[in-house]
Design a protein around this nucleic acid. Structure first.
Length: 739
DNA sequence: ACAAATAGCGTTTTT
DNA sequence: CGCTATTTGT
């Protein structure tokens, strides 16, 4: 083993080797993009184990995502296949490690919990809070923002909790919620760390005392995670942390300020640097250097490579069409689609690319954050299992019975009665849930479980999404059975563990079918691109107002710059930036100043925004296609609410009016059509062509009188009434009369 | 019951 | 800044 390890060490560059061999009790490694950070981290772990004879069980390796933790574990196992998995129990995300400590070593009873406590998602905590408000008749203002208000209330110190800003009972609620969670044996992600931190301060030394704390992507730590680290270090652990201050893009969700500085001072940590980037061509690196905050060195070792292409486009649609053609060409040249990626600033920007790529036959995959909670049927099923496995969880029982979409659709009051009384015979579904643990032995696979709950009946067979729903549920059950088998646990307790483990929230329950075909173009936000790399990267919409997004303060501005830095450093060989002359969203037309910050000699401008006569026709077809699609599956997609924004903005954009008069628009360059019709932009309703504005449509309403139609589509109608102003109506329900 | 006043977003997302 | 949801005032 030691010999094998010598070879590993030889493969490292001097900087990497120094980090691995460093002997100081605390060391932070300032690792540049693409400098082999993960390799150093893994080699360090192996070094500690094989050479320094530190047991894996004496190491705590902390990451922020399950994905990162899985990668580290699987790379260790690949090098050492006979390594028993339970030696790596201390390897995982901050939250899963806190969970492990709480379950195995820390006296959670001191906080009123049992060892079998449950992990709940934020939404369930919110439900609990609303329940408490009702039960205790608390006065809470701005209930719609309760989640945010509670978050800030929980962060306030005990001493300052006298009167709330709005003079309501928010602090009382926070206190009650804490009690209630302990009573119901439930912890949120926040509680996992908070409680672990509290107990680590008090508990006896021997219970948890790793010899090493090793942290990946340490720049993303928030205060809670910093405290967790500190608790372990003050128990005698040495520290080895790796991260990149130039890749801080999550400070808005609380990553602590200037971590490297803090760690260096707090623990007299030695700071080492990994300056050499192996990933990108030197042109790309040179451009990236313009966006570094501090003058940290960033050295490349590769050839200059091709210039960065900057494209001027009329709008996102034209860009999408260009990209489709460009990618086809690259594919013909032998670059696989999997090596290409399109980045944008906002989730809502993906839609137009999806539509065009679908039409053009480009295989693609959109990276969307989806958890079980985002799919209504799975959310319902999890609650079904939760109550079945723990009938004390009455909130889940009530939720399942009173759901409108699934189950028996019992009213909330009645459901509460049944669940609280706990008497059988009132509801078949309720009886089945209560009987699950008893009958568990006979239910050997997902199909039998499905049948046991009579889900054929309860998953709302008349709904359009029934097939999709039952497939999703079967898949979830399948994953659960696989988990139980893998853990070699007794069935009921294995299921309980699955349903309550944070691993559930991190697992790819929904992505099974996507990963089959790998050769796809990836579409994602720049945020989501962190940690990935592609041969060809296309960053789209590099306009001011998008990249950078209009931000209030300096800090936000700097974060935007780091974000762009992250985006361009994902590219290995080829990078293209595009900006729009007619951005439909909040962006300004023209190139972002970020493009101007790159030395011109690195750039190649492509300013031809040719008229492409058929483009308008194509665009019309794409929009038509989308309309028929969204009409068909309105209720199935959980992401629907997110996707409504681009839809709306599309209705308002000028193309809508072009679509209504195709003959007129076709021979015009789209850019001209806007500039040549100044009256149009002065109109109150730009979606109407001048002709339509002249022959105004009038409607009569029983209450508001006669009004002028200002906006109209298939479902909605907006009219302006004299003395009343504008009013929106749903056509199907309003009693409107055309005049 | 309606109108005026006020608060606080806006985007990015993991556990 | 401009919009929306909510609270507060009449």
């Amino acid at each position: 083993m030691e010999l094998y390890f010598e070879k590993e060490l030889d493969r490292l560059n001097p900087y990497q080797r120094e980090a691995v061999l460093d002997e100081s009790p605390a060391c932070v490694v300032n690792a540049n993009v693409g400098s082999g950070k993960t390799t150093v981290l893994i080699t360090k772990i192996q070094y500690l184990h094989h050479i320094k004879k530190v047991g894996y069980e004496d190491m705590t390796v902390l990451t922020f995502t399950n994905k990162a933790a899985d990668e580290i574990k699987s790379r260790l196992l690949a090098a050492e296949p006979e390594l028993p998995a339970d030696k790596l129990r201390g390897f995982g995300t901050f939250h899963s490690t806190a969970l492990y400590y709480l379950r195995e070593f820390l006296p959670v009873e001191d906080l009123g919990y049992s060892k079998e406590f449950l992990v709940i998602d934020p939404e369930e905590e919110l439900e609990l809070a609303y329940d408490l408000i009702r039960q205790h008749k608390l006065k809470i203002k701005y209930k719609n923002r309760l989640k945010k208000r509670l978050e800030s209330a929980m962060a306030v110190r005990e001493a300052e909790k006298k009167v709330s800003k709005y003079q309501d009972d928010i602090y009382e609620l926070a206190g009650l919620l804490k009690e209630e969670k302990a009573k119901q044996d439930k912890m949120t992600f926040f509680d996992l760390l908070e409680n672990a931190n509290f107990l680590l301060k008090e508990a006896e030394q021997k219970s948890v005392s790793p010899k090493w704390v090793i942290i990946d992507e340490v720049q993303d730590s928030d205060t809670q995670q910093l405290v967790f680290t500190d608790r372990l270090i003050s128990r005698g652990a040495s520290l080895f942390a790796v991260g990149d201050p130039n890749q801080v893009i999550y400070s808005w969700r609380g990553s602590a300020f200037q971590i490297f500085y803090t760690l260096k001072h707090k623990y007299q940590a030695k700071e080492l640097t990994l300056p050499i980037n192996y990933r990108s061509s030197t042109s790309i690196l040179e451009a990236a250097r313009c966006f570094l905050q501090n003058g940290s060195p960033l050295t490349g070792v590769r050839e200059p490579g091709s210039k960065i292409i900057v494209r001027r486009q009329y709008d996102a649609f034209q860009d999408a069409c260009y990209l489709a053609a460009r990618m086809k060409k690259l594919h013909e040249e032998g670059i696989s689609y999997g090596e290409m990626a399109v980045f944008y600033r906002l989730q809502s920007q993906s839609k137009i690319f999806e539509d065009v790529f679908l039409r053009e036959g480009i295989p693609f995959e959109v990276s969307l954050k989806k958890t079980v909670g985002d799919v209504p049927v799975l959310k319902w099923c999890i609650r079904l299992l939760r109550f079945s496995l723990n009938t004390k969880d009455t909130a889940s029982g009530i939720y399942v019975l009173s759901s409108r979409e699934y189950g028996e659709g019992i009213s909330g009051k009645k459901a509460e009665e049944i669940v609280r009384a706990g008497q059988p015979g009132k509801s078949l579904l309720f009886d089945r849930m209560c009987g699950l643990v008893e009958n568990c032995r006979e239910l050997g696979n997902e199909e039998e479980l499905f049948t046991y709950f009579e889900l054929d009946r309860y998953l709302n067979p008349v709904s359009a999404s029934f097939h999709e729903d039952s497939d999703a549920v079967r898949r979830l059950f399948g994953i659960m059975y696989a988990y139980v088998r893998e853990q070699q646990a007794e069935r009921a307790s294995g299921m309980r563990e699955f349903v309550n483990s944070s691993s559930l929230y991190g697992s790819d329950v929904l992505r099974e079918d996507i990963s089959r075909q790998e050769d796809r173009v990836k579409l994602m936000t720049i945020h989501a691109s962190k940690g990935l790399e592609f041969s060809c990267v296309f960053i789209t919409g590099v306009n001011h107002g998008l990249i950078p997004l209009r931000t209030g303060d300096m800090e936000g501005e700097e974060e935007e710059r780091r974000l762009f830095f992250v985006g361009i450093t994902r590219a290995k060989d080829h990078l293209e930036l595009s900006y729009y002359m007619n951005p439909q969203e909040r962006a300004d037309p023209g190139e972002s100043r970020y493009i101007r910050m790159i030395p011109p000699r690195l750039l190649e401008h492509d300013e031809d925004i040719g008229p492409a006569v058929s483009l308008q026709e194509l665009k019309r077809q794409v929009q038509e296609q989308r309309r028929s699609m969204t009409a068909g599956c309105l209720e199935q997609s959980p992401g629907q609410s997110l996707e409504q924004n681009p839809e709306q903005s599309l209705e308002q954009n000028p193309e809508q009016s072009l679509e209504q008069n195709p003959e007129q628009s076709l021979e015009q360059n789209p850019e001209q059509s806007l500039e040549q019709n100044p009256e149009q932009s002065l109109e109150q309703s730009p979606e109407q062509s001048p002709e339509q504005a002249k022959q105004q449509k009038l409607v009569r309403h029983s209450r508001y009188g006669t009004g002028v139609v200002v906006n109209e589509d298939e479902t909605m109608l907006e009219a302006e009434f004299e003395g009343y102003g504008k009013k929106e109506f749903i056509k199907a329900f309003s009693e409107l009369e055309y005049i």
